[in-house]
Design a protein around this nucleic acid. Structure first.
Lengths: 228, 228
DNA sequence: CGTCTATTTGAGTTAGCTCAACCGTCGTGG
DNA sequence: CCACGACGGTTGAGCTAACTCAAATAGACG
């Protein structure tokens, strides 16, 4: 039922992020590129910019002092990262793959939506949708088994970026096993074992470690909703 | 470091919810009471109302088809529940104790903030702060041990509703062990065992199952940050 | 070709779960 | 007034899903 677990909690369907800043794009933003591994911002930095992913994937995460990490989201093209309720970022943000991003100055942005109730309204819907998606992820982190988590994760990617070919739907998995583990609250070994299990059960194929082809989507859905 | 885990993701300090609807209060809202156990709304219901808790505690939660439940938040006085990005509620909401609530008609509310950029701005800060708090809870659900979860939970309640007396700080625990378990992604037995462990270690006292007195707050903080 | 890193696989351990018993409180009804 | 059942909480015993530690494998890259 609550299979949907967001890649990024900002990817609300009712809002088209490409339009969000459309009119402001020329004057108040610029487009930038970054290689995989590049850090966009760190927790505690001044939140001067808001980023819209245009190509590639970025990751937001938090780290405990002892090194434990929680990945909060994978942001795909159309997603926005770097929003904050105060002047500081509250997570780290790094490029998972080579990325192209649009960078907005936050001041300019703030100025614009104060004068624009329509934009404000859109943004509110965006934020509340993000909250709703995060709540689904709570269920995932708090109450689902390893198989359910991995299956749910693959289903979200499939819906979001899957390319249909013949009877399979395929997509890239640009993030590492470690990223997936820290997103789902598991270990890399459990991710790896679970993926192999899905492969051996003919639910998915893994042409290489960073590419997934789903051959039995109903099987995957069944696993996502209740592990056997 | 990231001990803070929100009771309710709407309890952002920078916004004073009492002021949020202040001017609209007389015409667009009314005050209502409900007994413990009363359901304010269910997932999927039309989201016609927004609720502000005035007294008591309400709980928002989601349930999987097989009965597994995740408690999303405990909303204390000053907190707001029932916000939605579309026309439906996305969680269940019930009174944990006897509550007094202010009920806002959503239509009226929507109408008001479209015309009120200041309110919209406040509300945006509120929503993004909620997101930030939820991200902390992700760390809790995904990466913390049982002891760390319980200790963190108690610390949040202590900060929020603790009454200082002598060298102790005490507060009520109006929700059931089951509620706490479903909030922290644990079982009632683990909650119970962990609380008794804290009691035996002289970190807390439990005058009765629904009342906590923290006698060693530094010990509790240490446990919240890294379990031994 | 050697080194480095990411992933997979194996083996043993354990934190937290399940199942079950027990206890105390409270409300109901004889 | 007491007996009784229901319910929430606690405690015990054993189990298991996921973890830890360790080793093997496979690419990527100089």
């Amino acid at each position: 039922m609550y299979v949907t677990s967001p890649l990024n909690y900002l990817n609300a369907e009712p809002v088209n992020p490409a339009n969000l800043f459309a009119e402001a794009a020329d004057t108040r933003s610029h487009i930038s590129s970054a290689d995989a591994g590049h850090t966009l911002f760190c927790e505690g930095d001044d939140a001067d910019f808001v980023y819209e992913v245009l190509e590639g994937v970025v990751r937001t995460s938090k780290v405990l002092c002892d090194g434990r990490r929680q990945v909060l989201s994978f942001a795909y093209p159309g997603d926005i990262v770097g929003l904050s309720h105060d002047q500081f970022y509250h997570s780290d943000c790094d490029a998972v793959s080579a990325v192209k991003i649009r960078v907005y100055r936050k001041n300019a942005y703030n100025a614009s939506y104060r004068d624009d109730p329509g934009l404000c309204d859109q943004f509110l819907r965006y934020a509340t949708a993000e909250v709703s998606n995060m709540q689904d992820h709570f269920m995932m982190l708090g109450r689902k088994s390893a198989v359910e988590k991995v299956a749910s994760f693959l289903l979200v990617l499939l819906d979001r970026v899957g390319e249909k070919r013949n009877c399979q739907t395929c997509f890239d998995l640009p993030m590492s096993r470690s990223d997936i583990a820290d997103f789902l609250g598991l270990t890399i070994e459990t991710i790896s074992r679970t993926l192999t299990r899905l492969r051996k059960d003919n639910i998915i194929e893994l042409p290489d470690p960073h590419r997934v082809c789903v051959c039995n989507i109903n099987g995957l859905r069944a696993l996502a909703e209740s592990a056997d």
